[in-house]
Simulated assay, not measured.
Amino acid sequence: MKILFVEDDDRIARPVVEDLRHQKYIVDYVADGLTAWAYAEASEYDCILLDLMLPKLDGITLCKRIRQSGYSGFILMLTAKDTVTDRVLGLDAGADDYLVKPFAIEELSARIRALSRRPQQFQDQVLQRGQLRMNLQTREVDYAQQPLDLTPKEFMLLECLMKRPSTVFTCEMLLDQVCELDRQAGTGTIRTHLTNLRRKFKQLGCQQNPIRTIYGVGYRLSSNGYNL
Rank of each mutant, 00 (worst) to 15 (best):
R117F: 03
L136S: 11
D97A: 09
I105R: 04
L115E: 08
R117N: 13
V88W: 03
P102E: 11
V141C: 10
Q137S: 06
L157D: 14
V126E: 04
R111D: 04
R133P: 07
P147K: 13
G94Q: 13
R129Q: 09
V100Y: 02
Q123C: 01
V126W: 09
I112R: 01
K101G: 04
I112C: 00
N135C: 01
D149M: 05
S109A: 05
L89D: 13
L127K: 10
D149H: 07
Q125R: 13
L108P: 05
E107A: 13
I105D: 02
S116F: 11
N135E: 02
K101F: 04
T85W: 05
G94F: 10
D82I: 06
R118P: 02
E154M: 07
V126C: 06
D82E: 11
I112W: 01
V84M: 08
R111P: 01
R118K: 11
R129M: 13
M156P: 06
E107D: 15
R129N: 12
S116C: 07
F103S: 04
G94P: 14
F103M: 04
L91F: 05
D97L: 05
F122Y: 14
Y98H: 01
R87H: 06
L150A: 06
R133N: 09
P152F: 08
F122L: 15
T138L: 12
T85L: 04
R139V: 07
Y98P: 01
R111H: 01
V88F: 08
R118W: 03
R87E: 12
P119K: 15
